[in-house]
Write a protein that binds this DNA or RNA. Structure first.
Lengths: 247, 247
DNA sequence: GCAATACCGCGTATGTAATACGCAGAAGAG
DNA sequence: CTCTTCTGCGTATTACATACGCGGTATTGC
């Protein structure tokens, strides 16, 4: 009954939605997309994203490298599904919060979900419009939170762009600063302030220099959490004013 | 005279700042970091980021693959410098704009700079705190724009996080939707709306479904530009209210 | 029942990268 | 003039993703 247009998105994504339940002829399938993805997530949790190779994931399942390609067309699809699985669905929203508290909760939960599996940060760059189940579930929840605000749809989507961009930006910086303490790209936080002092010498970059002298980039890189809240609240203030202005 | 701490950041970044001018003994150097980076940028402009391999860049310079490693420790450093070079310095800021117009201009310029070389989108994920000259120049300009607002430094930085996150998020989505029309990951925009209708069937994802029925995801993917402006203005509204409240 | 068919897991092979290592020659230092 | 330090670069290693095809299996049409 479906039109034959079902080829628009990769088969693995269709499969993740539970569509595409082919009645099949050949031997029984030994694996499941779900099992593959969760094995890959486990590898990433344990040994980092770089450890996720097709052969490693195959081994983890007691299977071979190439068997996975019966379920996935490319590694990229695996990564997309890993992100979806690791972030998971949005936690259920308490009723009657009001849109503002709702969005605060949404943003905070998303940030937490991402940082639970730090490697997801490296997968946030979208490879296309959101299409996986959990990703769309988050979007859906966002839109439901704004349901009764009277905002037009396009404003709701634009709001989502702003808020999720903020989350994204925040987790990326956080990960880059606090988590990537690999000796390869040294860049230890403690070296950062002296470095900035050095390059802002001789009157270069006066704005930055002034910030340094006011104590930005001080000891504690935990400040980013405050930055997160600050930016979120300012954004919500702006949205709130706009919603009020619509009446 | 420098303390011996100069090893905090990769040598190539130090070199990009013009520090590290070693008086050298051996043969004259045949290349320059600058030439390498601009050759790499040229390759990316012509054939995409995936075409940028060490050997390809070497060839482009009439040199060998391994010669590059006298200037760069890893390919990652090359990518970092490519981003810096492609984005370039911020355009000079008109005087007397006021902070709000200033930030609008900053955000718009940054968006334009990134989209001038679409491949830069894939390099935006930070690998550490910003350290390259142009990157810091943008940050510097941002801070100077906020100079007379009375905001504490940490609020200025948090504001930068919010605004740049918005730019980032916007260009990423834009690139993912409009530019990645590779047949590999099909996902043509025109297939997106039908896809969403399919997965929101049966009462699933009601928020999304409502948005669909209101005409979101309609024909024209040029709407993201309006989304960009909307989000930016809301954010600035919030900042403005906050600045006012400080008096 | 039975053959044809479509699909399974997976071994093998290919191609492309990044990059470690070491050599031979060049140029400034003493 | 020799020693040291640095150069460009050839070679070799390692690690992947993934194309291709084989031999076997379970379902389907007769």
């Amino acid at each position: 009954m479906d039109s034959e247009s079902g080829e628009a998105f990769p088969a693995s994504i269709e499969a993740a939605w539970g569509l595409r339940e082919r009645p099949h002829k050949g031997p029984k399938r030994g694996l499941t997309l779900e099992r593959i993805v969760s094995a890959a997530v486990k590898v990433a949790d344990e040994d980092g994203l770089d450890a996720v190779s097709m052969s490693r994931v195959g081994n983890e399942l007691g299977s071979s490298t190439m068997a996975l390609y019966r379920y996935l067309a490319t590694k990229d699809e695996l990564l997309t599904l890993m992100l979806d699985a690791a972030v998971g669905p949005p936690p259920p929203l308490p009723e009657g919060l009001g849109w503002r508290r709702g969005l605060e909760s949404w943003a905070t939960s998303m940030r937490a979900a991402i940082l639970t599996h730090p490697w997801t940060v490296h997968l946030l760059m979208p490879k296309g419009p959101p299409a996986t189940p959990n990703q769309l579930a988050w979007l859906d929840q966002f839109l439901r939170i704004l349901q009764d605000t009277g905002l037009p749809v396009s404003a709701k989507l634009a709001t989502q762009l702003l808020i999720s961009g903020h989350v994204w930006s925040h987790v990326s910086i956080t990960a880059a600063i606090t988590l990537d303490t690999e000796p390869g790209s040294l860049r230890r936080w403690s070296e950062y302030e002296p470095f900035l002092r050095r390059v802002t010498g001789g009157g270069r970059l006066p704005g930055l220099r002034a910030a340094l002298d006011e104590g930005a980039f001080g000891a504690d890189p935990g400040a980013p959490d405050d930055h997160f809240v600050f930016g979120l609240e300012r954004a919500l203030d702006g949205i709130e004013a706009h919603i009020r202005s619509l009446r």
